[in-house]
Simulated scan of single mutants.
Amino acid sequence: MDNKKREEILRLLEANARYTPKDIAVMLGLGLEETEKEIKQLEKEHVICGYHALVNWDKTDDEKISALVELKVQPQRGHGYDSIAEKIYQYPEVESLYLMSGAYDFSVILKKATMKEIANFVSTRLAVIEEVQSTATHIVLVRYKDHGTTLVEQKKDQRVMVMP
């Protein structure tokens, strides 16, 4: 299958992981068997790494919070940032980890937890890593949009039409 079709499959699954291979085959004008084979190959190559549901936790009774932690680190000679990243992403509390450009080297997104759990994790797990020079922890107050999906209800136009 050509790269363009592969990318179209990936875009569709990224937009809605509930699409079946049959749905995708119909939308792209492909054969079902060909589409199933390509999706399995993408999973095998670890291009498709998993399927997730996007949950709007603000609409639940869940009281836990999300946090983003910026880390400034000293890269290791001969290993750069990779060995430090490996130490960090091994923790189950770490939802996402990104190497960044700018004032901080890493951006760590922590799983939803209580404020006390987040503070404890940052102070006893992240800040004590030998290469970590500084941390900055940010608490997520409201998620308006996540993974391309708007999570807040858009306001309806309340204006009244006036006829001349």
Rank of each mutant, 00 (worst) to 15 (best):
A67F: 10
S83N: 08
D82E: 15
Y51L: 02
F121M: 03
A67K: 01
I118S: 00
S66F: 09
D105K: 06
K112I: 06
D62W: 00
T60Q: 11
L97R: 00
L68H: 10
L71R: 03
L110C: 11
K40F: 02
K59M: 12
P75R: 10
E45A: 10
Q74D: 14
A103G: 07
Y81F: 15
D58G: 10
K37N: 07
I109G: 00
T124E: 12
V47R: 11
L97I: 04
R77A: 15
A127V: 01
K111F: 08
H52Q: 12
Q74P: 00
P75T: 11
D58T: 08
K87Y: 13
I65W: 01
V69H: 04
Q74I: 12
I118N: 02
Y91P: 05
A53H: 06
K59S: 10
L42T: 01
G80C: 06
S66W: 05
D105Q: 10
V69G: 00
K72D: 15
E45V: 01
K87F: 12
L54I: 15
A67E: 04
F106Y: 11
D105N: 14
V122Q: 05
E45H: 08
Q41T: 09
M100E: 13
K112C: 09
A53G: 05
E63S: 11
S83M: 10
S101M: 09
L71K: 04
E130N: 08
I48S: 08
A85P: 00
I88H: 13
V122F: 02
F106L: 07
L99E: 02
Y51M: 04
V108G: 07
D62C: 03
A53T: 07
F106P: 09
A113H: 07
E70F: 15
W57K: 12
R77K: 14
